[in-house]
């Protein structure tokens, strides 16, 4: 059992939890994920790691209510427990492998969408600690859905915000804001990283390509075990089938077949709607 130390709602549909999982906390790196199970009857739900503290033995996860299982997660309170927490899973971000001196002075731009903003945070923190220059774009439909603004502003060089409806910051999509920052404001970057909904990562990649900017994306595919055993997470990258859980979750955006990845994400939509419906009438 893995105790929830703190819980807060970041928006009506997004919650942040700090969970006691000492083994995960002491091995975690930016870019990795973990899998939780609420109870004996629950699904194994992959979530990106939003922060980790080896001394405290805690990991931070951010969950958005989407289906039956994520609603169950968000219904848990501090003091309650997850039945299971396993991780860290997947490969750390590429930059974790780089030598200390290599990162100093490199210029990163992060493009974060919705709940995908949370896992950007440990990456920015790591890069800043290793001397990189880091700007961050956070996008959401509307101001009320923006998360991690203060946290991100505290660690990055420059924070840009955009909302689809213009209720806060730049009015428009992250892609529009990225183009503006690079083309109009004249900012130059060595590397872009996009984490968010698959559709956002697809278009962020197209924009990055147009700008001649290399881009890494973090794929939130379907998973069961998360250790390479089932292949539910397979994605086509550079024409080859790869397992996002063990060979990812981060890949070169240029190489990812996003249309296939989006189609595969919807594989159990019908079953999920039924499950969700059942829960409501229970």
């Amino acid at each position: 059992m893995y105790k929830i130390l703190t819980k807060e709602m970041l928006s009506p549909a997004i919650c942040r939890m700090k969970v006691l999982a000492p083994r995960v906390a002491s091995s975690a790196h930016p870019g990795q994920f973990l899998i939780v199970r609420v109870n004996e009857h629950g699904e194994r739900i992959p979530l990106t790691i939003s922060d980790f503290d080896a001394d405290e033995g805690s990991v931070t996860i951010v969950t958005q209510k989407i289906g039956a299982s994520t609603k169950e997660i968000c219904a848990l309170e501090a003091g309650e427990c997850f039945e299971d927490v396993v991780g860290p899973l997947g490969l750390p971000s590429d930059f974790v492998e780089k030598l200390d001196g290599e990162l100093a002075g490199s210029r990163y731009i992060f493009i974060a969408g919705g709940v995908g903003t949370a896992p950007v945070y440990p990456q920015v923190k790591y890069l800043k600690a290793h001397g990189a220059y880091v700007d961050v774009i956070i996008g959401a439909k509307t101001a009320g859905l923006l998360i991690y603004k203060e946290e991100m502003a505290a660690v990055c060089d420059h924070l840009y915000v955009c909302t689809d409806d213009g209720s806060e910051g730049f009015k428009g999509m992250v892609t529009g804001l990225l183009e503006k920052i690079v083309l109009e404001d004249g900012n130059r970057y060595d590397q872009a990283v996009a984490i968010g909904p698959m559709i956002m990562m697809k278009f962020a990649t197209l924009t990055a390509k147009k700008l001649g900017l290399p881009i890494i994306v973090s794929l939130n595919t379907l998973m069961v075990d998360g250790t390479g055993m089932c292949g539910a997470c397979r994605v086509t990258v550079a024409g080859k089938t790869r397992f996002a859980c063990v060979e990812g979750p981060e890949f070169n955006g240029y190489d990812v077949d996003f249309d296939e990845a989006m189609r595969r994400q919807g594989m159990y939509r019908r079953e999920e709607i039924e499950e969700d419906h059942k829960c409501k009438i229970r």
Partner: peptide, 21 residues
């Protein structure tokens, strides 16, 4: 652990699973 596939066209269509999954 790792399931093998055949590397034939259509293996990543929705509805194709490894027996493991």
């Amino acid at each position: 652990g790792l399931p093998r596939f055949m590397n034939i066209p259509g293996e990543n269509l929705n509805g194709v699973f490894s027996a493991n999954e």
